[in-house]
Design a binder for these strands. Structure first.
Lengths: 208, 208
DNA sequence: GTCTATAAATCGATAGAC
DNA sequence: GTCTATCGATTTATAGAC
């Protein structure tokens, strides 16, 4: 029969198998990185034989690339949803809140993207220079507009976005270190505490 | 003759060779990660044969571990130097300044530590739970003391330190993304701009 | 100390039976 | 579609000459 990855309509079992492989691959890749992960580990995690995985995907890199690609839009959606029409402070704090939620609920995805960018982002291709830059420029322009109108204190909007990325994603990517430093007592409220901290910092910085 | 890595006094040539290997390994490991790096790549970068590298180190993991270990104290030194005796705001801004300097001048080291923590920090061992936690707790107590004295606005000192780590290291670890988003025009002043931004944000947050 | 040669292990990928 | 068996490439590590 035709290879499963072809353009023809996938059957139910094909979709389920591919989904199981993606789920297992997300676990393994986010822990070990692309080169650190082996097909055996993914196969074991998915409960599927290694050879069967090869039947569904064109090799290890294909799993990785398709996984990354499939997560991209979801990953930038919080920033995409930042709207010119809302209240400036509320829009920015909602953005922070959604980013903290993602760090709490999608730490594997966060680490996947972090490792990819850290190691040169060869598979994100030119997307950083084109799509991501365009998105950030667009939202930075909105924020700059609010500042011109006097609705926010003036500050560099690009670095504001970088600082939000950095602070929120830190709690996913370096969660191990955060938990180690906070200790067992305080680490169970780390995401709420982080959001409260970042919110407080941004309000004091951005209030006109 | 005895193996080079032994406890006996190393000769000059041994030190130089080991240093060249460390330098090459830092390049390769920070770009590819532990498992993505090969001895061949390190050997080529160091201008030494692969077999000769094995003569000086007990395998790839030994190079990695010793490299990490050797950088540890330097890596935390900016925080260690934060002194109770100085002016509170000045001490914190000096800390930020030194961290930004490290992101600018030691991005390879930053990415090395980032990858290690991101992937579970198996080689940093219990150091995070003991040494690092003790250091952060000590400095957080100093900062908390300043707040009690009314010399700084009250805010969670642990999350303050996390946010400084996150924002400063972001410019080393994700420099590729930062440069892509800022574009060729603005990215050449990114470290100065970042320091100015973070400083401004912290002053507004911490001023009593 | 440095080299050539090669062993040994790991891993991605393929062939072919059912 | 899933399996067993195995190839081939890569890579770590070792043996031994010089």
């Amino acid at each position: 029969m035709a290879k499963a990855g072809a353009t023809s309509r996938p059957t139910r079992i094909q979709r389920e198998k591919r989904q199981a492989i993606f789920e297992a691959a997300l676990n393994v890749f986010s822990e070990k990185g692309l080169r650190g992960a082996t097909l055996d580990q993914i196969a074991k995690a998915a409960g599927i034989s290694k050879q069967n995985i090869v039947y569904y995907f064109n090799g290890k890199e294909a799993i990785y690339s398709e996984l990354l690609e499939g997560l991209l839009e979801q990953w930038v959606s919080p920033l995409r949803d930042l709207s010119e029409d809302g209240d400036p402070m509320e829009e920015i704090l909602t953005y922070v809140s959604r980013k903290i939620e993602m760090s709490r609920d999608m730490p594997r995805e966060s680490r996947l993207f972090a490792t990819e960018v850290l190691h040169g982002a060869p598979r994100l291709g030119d997307m950083l220079n084109t799509d991501l830059k365009a998105l950030v420029d667009e939202k930075a322009a909105i924020i700059a507009g609010w500042m011109v109108e006097g609705r926010l204190a003036t500050i560099d909007p690009h670095h504001l976005i970088f600082s939000i990325w950095a602070m929120t994603q830190h709690y996913a990517d370096f969660d191990l270190q955060v938990q180690a430093v906070l200790g067992p007592v305080r680490s169970d409220t780390r995401f709420e505490d982080a959001e409260a901290f970042i919110t407080h910092m941004l309000v004091r910085t951005l209030r006109p």
